[in-house]
Design a protein around this nucleic acid. Sequence first.
RNA 1: GAGCCUGUAGCUCAGUCGGUAGAGCAUCGCCCUUUUAAGGCGUUGGUCCUGGGUUCGAGCCCCAGCGGGCUCACCA
Length: 612
Amino acid sequence: MFESEFEEKLFALRQEKLKEIAALGQQLGLTEAEATYPNSYPATASIPELRERYIDRAQPTTAEDFAANRVEVAIAGRVMQIRVQGKAGFAQLQQGGLRLQMYVRKDDVGEAQFGIYKLLDLGDHVGVKGYLFVTRTGETTVHVTELRFLTKALLALPDKYHGLEDVELRYRQRYVDLFMNTGQSAKQAEHGPAQKVADDPDAVAGVESQQPGESQPLHEAAPPNVREVFVKRAQILRALRKFFDERGYLEVETPMMQPVAGGATARPFTTHHNALDLDLFLRIAPELYLKRLVVGGMDRVYEINRNFRNEGVSTQHNPEFTMLEFYQAYANYHDLMDLTEELIKFVAMEVNGSLLTRFPIPKGPRSGEIVAIDLSQWQRLSMREAIVLFWPDQAGQAPSLRDFQNPHTLLPIHFSNGAVAMRQHRSALGDTQDAVFVDPDAPDTESSRKRVRLANLEVYFESVAHLLKEGTRVGNVISEVFEVLAEEHLVQPTIIYDFPLAVSPLSKVKPEEPEWVERFEFYIGGFEVGNAFSELNDPVDQRRRFEAQVAEKARGDDEAMEMDEDYVRALEYGLPPTAGEGIGIDRLTMILTGQRSIRDVILFPLMRPVAK
RNA sequence: GAGCCUGUAGCUCAGUCGGUAGAGCAUCGCCCUUUUAAGGCGUUGGUCCUGGGUUCGAGCCCCAGCGGGCUCACCA
């Protein structure tokens, strides 16, 4: 039960204090329960409300104003600081992430209540009645006329200056993190929230980077304002709903437990229904159910809820994550491109009041670098254009768009030549080793990193050339090449459109290019945030694609899709031309709140339980 | 799943060459009726992540394991 002897002793000591508080309460005519764990407190206003009305404004109410027109208040909050001064004293109460100071004098409240004040510990909850005044040092404060004890903290609060910084404890005991890291600690006020700054000197260069002078040394950085992040997360959800509600979309809820886990390629979690003796899967996407609803005549639907994928955990992946999916009948992917830009801009304005956001890039060679992202400027590139555009400088002549029309013959030439060019470039740098033997753990200097990268890319290009010539899984290879070459560059908002058919079993093909589908993903901050397409609505084609997926699965791809007979049947009744999109809400929240890890935008991220 | 980093008081952290376990805050006691990381004097608090090994002697060196962070892989 207790983590240490220290905690056990403290717990016992504070139980003793509760008894003393009960005794003092008796003098005030309170029962033991009323004195120690009362049921309520009739506050007249919250601390944030009072601060907004009298303090946090251009012209705060002055000492003279308060003296002329006494403002009586009753507030409640958690005690975060105590400064006793003999027969008087101060304390800071925190509510809603903000603090208000109270001032108690024995002369004003009497023996019993002052006794209660002296028994207060950091973390206790109290309610006070009094009037506002301004102290000598200029802090607006409640001059207490009546003090009520509300709840005792039986455990010790973390360091009042640093707050709770241990990342593991912050995630495991979010309830402590939430009241400690509200931006109110002295350290947070001095240093601002933690942001890892690029340790790579050349990574800080460039127009969009922050100026070096803005860098915060890592050891001085305070934890983020956790409360603010989650308040913003709620604002993001509200803004999304507002956006879709205003446009006639209906919010729906579809099954989280599904007999067939469809709509995406991912490994599912399995569970079991006892009464029906039925194996079920936690959904990996709501997609197939939402499109059933469009068949049912719900022309515009959206759902915001959890998806579950039994995959790895990283700074961009949590096994359960929140997804927005929406579908619009009689629209195609071009309509959704426009809608996406509008949506992201709308949400950013609602939440931040700005289309600029500072974001630490979470992965890739620029990992940790803080960039200013301009959500008003969107670039649109086809996947093929992106590969051409981000073809490495040292990899020779980039393919042309026309080369993609002959992916088995023209395209492999560029990858083979690219591998040769990179090898030459590398040996010009003095690296004569065979690429595969380049040690990835070589000293971590800029030039060694470049060589390793070049060498790995060289091997990769050779294998791509080989795969393309063979002609198997060409679509998979192309989309993978896109991710390898382009993704890390897509820091500013970018729509990547037209995907290979092979990686898009639910998308409609482009009428003039049957190997490509009407699909786009959008990228911000160097990772994918959303995925959209014109929905495949030909049931015969859909059945064929499911069968191809089933064959993939049989070949060992355990992420390939399964046949969903009922979904095909729904399509047989007729899905109108429809476009749909999914947006990762956690990732969007990361971008709009400047958080580097998905765990910093999920209240209770998955953690391995502590071993007993 | 792999690599790197990391684990010392409730919290934030020191700990030199391998030689008795340290500081600040918090706790507890005393003083202090406008303080604000309040202050002053004193006090308590340790399975140095766990288990082995080396050594006269291990917080420190070695091996194994566990937790966490980061990077990579899978993936969104």
